[in-house]
Design a protein around this nucleic acid. Structure first.
Length: 225
DNA sequence: CCCCAGGCGTCCA
DNA sequence: TGGACGCATGGG
């Protein structure tokens, strides 16, 4: 148990307020966004999503029928677009593995909702391994999908998380993804809404006070903890 | 011109 | 296991 982790959350929430990450969007959009934002700022990823939306391509069935080269051009603004197009393609294939557009066509839920309901119905650990088995889906992307699209209680670790807690000496700089994740999950109740807000708050803090280009977290609100 | 952004896989010692 | 490198756009 590390109650500094709890203190930090309270402090950040008090200072910044709730961040409401990825609200009002479809689960598919969040999944796609998780891949598009890899090592890229959200603005660039967001433009790519807008491009897909504008042509009504942001659905499981549309993406499934889209040539990879064409998809790559649509997501160009997100960077690494050739790689990401292949990754998205494989991810869509995984989502559709256990649902069939022919037999499942009618009903009062859309095909997208049906696929995603079935996909996320699986046990979280199994789901995580299925995501990690795809090339181009690493721990952060898998966990982002589980937490933000699937509402599973999985703590997401990113470069900001690493930088913030290592600079505040809560963990050695060389700690890996799993060690950092464990620090949070062993200190907090297993609560998806809490994990969601906490991760978003760390990103907010990191952007303002814990920049890569500066050696320390200058004037960081956490310096009092 | 430089550095950076919500990564990940491969290669090589 | 761990460090270098490729992937690539858009903003400061």
């Amino acid at each position: 148990m590390n109650n500094k982790i709890t203190c930090i959350h309270k402090l950040l929430l008090d200072r910044f307020g709730p961040q409401y990450w990825w609200p009002g969007e479809t689960r598919l959009e969040i999944i796609i966004g998780a891949v598009l934002t890899q090592n890229t700022n959200w603005t660039n990823a967001s433009h790519a999503i807008t491009n897909l939306k504008n042509e009504n391509l942001l659905s499981v069935s549309s993406l499934l029928n889209l040539p990879v080269d064409y998809l790559a051009q649509k997501i160009r603004s997100s960077g690494y677009y050739n790689q990401k197009a292949v990754r998205l393609r494989n991810l869509i294939l995984l989502l559709t593995e256990s649902c069939d557009p022919e037999t499942d066509a009618d009903g009062n839920v859309t095909y997208d909702e049906l696929c995603l309901d079935r996909f996320f119905a699986e046990e979280t650990a199994v789901l995580r391994n299925r995501l990690l088995a795809l090339k181009g889906i690493g721990p952060e992307t898998a966990d982002s999908i589980l937490l933000y699209a699937g509402n599973k209680p999985v703590f997401v670790v990113d470069a900001y998380t690493h930088r913030i807690i290592s600079r505040h000496s809560l963990i050695p700089e060389e700690s890996d993804y799993h060690e950092i994740q464990d620090l949070f999950t062993s200190s907090l109740p297993e609560d998806a809404a809490l994990f969601n807000e906490y991760h978003a708050l760390l990103v907010r803090l990191g952007k303002e006070f814990c920049k890569k280009s500066e050696p320390l977290c200058m004037d960081c609100p956490l310096n009092d903890v």
